[in-house]
Simulated assay, not measured.
Amino acid sequence: MQSPAIPPSTERREGVVIETDVNLKPYNTFGLPATARRLVRIREELDVRRVVDHPELGRAPKFVLGGGSNLVLTRDVDAVVLKMEIPGLRVEERDDCWIVEAGAGVAWHEAVAGSLALGVPGLENLALIPGTVGAAPVQNIGAYGVELKDRLENVDVVDLTTGRRVTLPAEVCRFGYRDSVFKQTGYGGLAGKSVITKVRLRCPKPWQPQLGYLDIERKMAETGISAPDAKQVFDWICEIRRAKLPDPARIGNAGSFFKNPVVSAEQCRDIITRDPHIVHYPMPDGSFKLAAGWLIDACGWKGKSVGGAAVYEKQALVLVNRGEARGAEVVTLARAIQESVYGRFGIRLEPEPVVV
């Protein structure tokens, strides 16, 4: 339960600027109410080490906050919130690729648009995804045929216990579908143990457009452009996403709320027998990815609500804040959708956002 609003205060202790009782509503794209008991803005890697070395904060639990675009807050946050605000974007050209280096606090879409403005193609399919650069590897963000793992060179990570920085190459990040070592808590997992401070992305030469997606193919047919350049693909992706997804600045949301479930070929055939129109995509290993939004829509959830939380009327995969929604209402709505989809299709939908 959220506590009554308390005016925030700021103080400096042992070289660290600590903000107390900070309203987190502006810092999560769902616009959910919650308070951070203590918050430290991380504007350079050294700030992380200062927190780790701090006599009081060093031993306290930490909560890393980027753009708040993959987050459902159901309560106040007692852990020390590390608000990632490290800036910077630069490009290094090599014979076989471009390396785009960005600070963890840079907005992801700004990194995509900024690299394109600097003459670097390769990230355009990931345009308009909300959140920060530092959060992108955690979730292994992906859209329209490209995932972060396809472009990651390496990341700088600071250990939240020792303050030591290491650079991790892509191959040790254990990427999966909307998953990575940074989300994992088991053996070798880094969830809660480290924070990403800098990301380097590899955009290969020569550039090859990724066009094998139905929405992009429709744009090609509509415009008659069969060989788009990177800027054209970027513009198409922005148009497609804006038509489907609500702007968090206008309607609170966390983007796609559920992962697209992956089923065996046998399961897919069984579902198609009962629902021939189900949207599905073949995977390289012979399995099939089902469109979670289609499953939710088929169960009649589009436009329905629980308190201030609702299913977006234009895209059933998106849950929105219709006004003064509470995190508990979002969770209740999500669980009802999960039970409904399971009851009809025998499939458990898995949420994408982190529930706190």
Rank of each mutant, 00 (worst) to 15 (best):
Pro137Asn: 08
Arg178Gly: 07
Gln210Gly: 06
Asp179Gln: 14
Lys193Thr: 06
Gly188Phe: 01
Gln210Ile: 10
Arg151Leu: 15
Thr197Trp: 01
Ala136Gln: 04
Lys219Arg: 15
Leu118Asp: 07
Thr185Asn: 12
Ile216Asp: 07
Val138Ile: 15
Asp215Met: 05
Gly119Leu: 05
Leu168His: 09
Ser180Trp: 00
Asp150Pro: 04
Ala113Val: 13
Lys198Glu: 15
Leu128Phe: 10
Phe182Asp: 11
Thr167Asp: 08
Gly131Lys: 01
Val172Trp: 08
Glu153Tyr: 14
Ala170Val: 12
Leu152Gln: 03
Val120Phe: 01
Gly142Ile: 06
Ser180Met: 06
Ile129His: 03
Leu201Gly: 03
Asn140Gln: 13
Asn140Gly: 08
Leu118His: 11
Leu152Ser: 03
Asn154Trp: 15
Cys173Pro: 04
Leu211Glu: 07
Cys203Val: 09
Leu128Ala: 12
Lys198Thr: 14
Leu116Arg: 13
Pro169Ser: 11
Leu116Phe: 00
Val172Arg: 13
Glu147Gly: 07
Leu126Val: 01
Gly142Pro: 04
Gly176Leu: 10
Arg164His: 14
Pro137Ala: 07
Val166Ala: 15
Gln139Pro: 00
Leu201Pro: 00
Gly114Thr: 05
Leu148Asn: 08
Thr167Gly: 04
Gly134Ile: 02
Ile129Gln: 01
Arg174Cys: 13
Gln208Lys: 13
Ala170Ser: 15
Ala191Gln: 15
Arg202Ser: 04
Phe182Ala: 09
Glu124Leu: 05
Pro169Met: 11
Arg151Tyr: 10
Leu201Glu: 02
Val166Phe: 00
Val146Gly: 10
Val138Trp: 01
Asp179Ile: 00
Tyr177Asp: 10
Gly188Val: 05
Ser180Gly: 03
Arg165Gln: 14
Glu147Lys: 07
Trp207Met: 06
Ile196Gly: 08
Tyr144Leu: 12
Asn154Met: 14
Thr161Leu: 15
Gln139Asp: 01
Lys183Ile: 01
Arg164Trp: 04
Arg164Ser: 13
Glu171Pro: 00
Gly122Ile: 04
Val120Ala: 06
Glu153Val: 08
Ile216Glu: 05
Gln184His: 13
Arg151Ala: 10
Thr132Val: 01
